[in-house]
Design a binder for these strands. Sequence first.
DNA 1: CCTCCATATCATTCCTCGCTGATATGTTAT
DNA 2: ATAACATATCAGCGAGGAATGATATGGAGG
Lengths: 125, 125
Amino acid sequence: MEEIATDRNPVEAAIEQRAKLFRGLADPSRLAILDALRTGPLVVHEIVERTGLTQPNVSNHLRCLSDCGLVESARDGRFVRYKVSSPQIMDLLREADALLNVVAEDIKACRNYRVDGSDGPPRRA
Amino acid sequence: MEEIATDRNPVEAAIEQRAKLFRGLADPSRLAILDALRTGPLVVHEIVERTGLTQPNVSNHLRCLSDCGLVESARDGRFVRYKVSSPQIMDLLREADALLNVVAEDIKACRNYRVDGSDGPPRRA
DNA sequence: CCTCCATATCATTCCTCGCTGATATGTTAT
DNA sequence: ATAACATATCAGCGAGGAATGATATGGAGG
């Protein structure tokens, strides 16, 4: 049947939700933090050590991830321990890796967005 | 013992790949296009109609998606027909929706990024 | 109480990226 | 060849957001 998006509003809402989620994940620092948390909970300075990011930077991204419900925090003495809030997150990351097994070459060659220190001139979008 | 990421380079590379992939998906227009292609291949002007985006805009995003290997194009007369290149992409989107079932509330409330016409003042990151 | 350590917040700066409008390429038909 | 349609490209504008450096909060200990 013709689904010509007569009632696009709920669809648009769902799309914006997805976009927001993906944007939350579309940052090397945040992905590095999630990767560090893969093996278990960590306190902030441990995350700083493992990722090599600055402390305020980690703190900002942790707040970002926390606001999005992707990580949870708990005070432990003067430390704050963070952990991944839901196993679905790691499922999503695994699915992303599965897709990358297919499109990794193109993604690497894609010059539309720059991530960190990608070399080469960006494409004028 | 301390796993202070002595050989972080390959890990970093993988993280940047993921970031690039997620950034490719972190845009409402591109997600709308992928959503339009969910039911099957479409030519460009059909995508324009269904998404309500302008033609150059759709064309730009299609190039973007194509560069990343997420869609494939084939000439059909004077039209160009686009389709999702791999079923893993839809798998990833489904996994994202599964995660959204858990964190949708937080994502919606998250003011760190704005998507399209999100109301309210953005948080100063 | 004052200091040290761990973490969070703030303001500024810079750069990336998406949208728009005009135009170019390309294909088919008359 | 020319017209009409479909798609792609380009330059420029504008805003969002990430990193930085300094600073604020907050708990533990001497």
